[in-house]
Design a protein around this nucleic acid. Structure first.
Lengths: 216, 216
DNA sequence: CCTACCGATCGGTAGG
DNA sequence: CCTACCGATCGGTAGG
């Protein structure tokens, strides 16, 4: 595919200061971003299966064949949405490099950050439940994602255990399964009634119950 | 509505011993039950929104207008499915009369029983996430259901606390929120990979971590 | 990026 | 309980 040719409006210096895209592809990339955001929202609202390309396209002000020009099909749009969210998460937490107790603190921070972005919470909550079905296009994605997440948290618990920081009888891997489950379950209650639950506080309190010394 | 008139086949004594329905309404009630079971399964597989009345009807071997003869519309079918499951649950656990530690043991039993009925687990897991959307027809149902469940579990924790059976620093209500969240989150991981998680064992271990003495 | 269209499928109703 | 149908909506494609 050839780069988009510059048109008069986009090279007009008076407009160039007001509108972001100055060279080829930039406009297309911005449009892609708009579509991904709208898709994230709608997938979170009604799930993947019930979301329509027409509704997403309408929210960004284009036709649905226009949307399909940017993403080959509905499944590819879903894959792009998930990849887009992973990029963001990796950039913020995955590469934080924290280990042991520091990693648990980062986990609590992640939960607190999620509470400030309900759209993301909805996306994962609704899609993970929907993807429970083996035929769902994101089934493998979530299966692998949980395996990786649980393994990572288990490693942090094991590290804390090695330093004697874990209460007696706490198994690192089982504790990891439970922490991840707790985070997911809290999201359901929180989305149903946000005044009822403080997700980050609950996760922190749960973790403190597993540690010899509270996270602080 | 008038009761169904008995027809020759149903009053034939030779058949009456083989086929269940002997008097009016019985056949209709059996059909309703069939429909509710098929709807439970499909709602669990793809959620309420993506489930079609035609698919449910086909699984029972009738037409979809035939299904609508038993249930006025799709929303009423959903309400009937939820009420049907509540009846079952109340009959088995709600009225068990257990309190305090006994109630927690009954909770672990409930989780173990759920692991033997994946269809029910799927139903609640998928529908509760879907019903997170305020416009969902089951939104209020799940909102109220969680409020009731959390309150009931909190009461049991409070009772245990009054007898000094709760570890120091454990708040009955917060502990209840977390136990319910844990159960929900475990279901997602279990449905994604049933070999990875023992739901009942995890709930029991979690509870033991809150109690002065293990449930035993 | 658009309009126009494809075949398939949806919940619900008419009428028996 | 059925067939036949309604208007609406779906993902995707043709062709520009």
């Amino acid at each position: 595919m050839a780069p988009v040719r510059t048109d008069p409006a986009r090279t007009d210096p008076a407009r160039a200061d007001l509108v972001a895209p100055r060279r080829g592809y930039a406009k297309g990339r911005a449009r892609r971003e708009e579509i991904l955001d709208a898709a994230t929202t709608l997938f979170g609202e009604v799930g993947y299966r019930s979301a329509s390309l027409r509704e997403i396209a309408q929210r960004v002000g284009i036709s649905h064949p226009g949307l399909l020009h940017h993403f080959g099909g509905k499944e590819q749009l879903l894959a792009a949405v998930l990849a887009h969210r992973d990029e963001r998460d990796d950039h913020r937490f995955g590469l934080s490099g924290a280990r042991g107790r520091g990693a648990l603190r980062a986990l609590v921070e992640l939960v607190a950050d999620n509470a400030r972005h309900p759209g993301i919470v909805e996306l994962y909550c609704v899609l993970s439940a929907e993807a429970t079905s083996p035929e769902h296009p994101a089934h493998r994605y979530f299966r692998d994602r949980y395996a990786r997440t649980v393994a990572a948290v288990a490693r942090h618990f094991a590290e804390i255990a090695a330093e004697g920081g874990l209460r007696p009888g706490v198994d690192p891997r089982a504790a990891a399964v439970r922490v991840v489950a707790l985070m997911d379950g809290l999201q359901v209650q929180w989305l149903l009634d946000r005044t009822c639950v403080d997700m980050a506080a609950e996760v922190r309190a749960h973790l403190d119950g597993l540690l010899v010394e509270p996270l602080g």
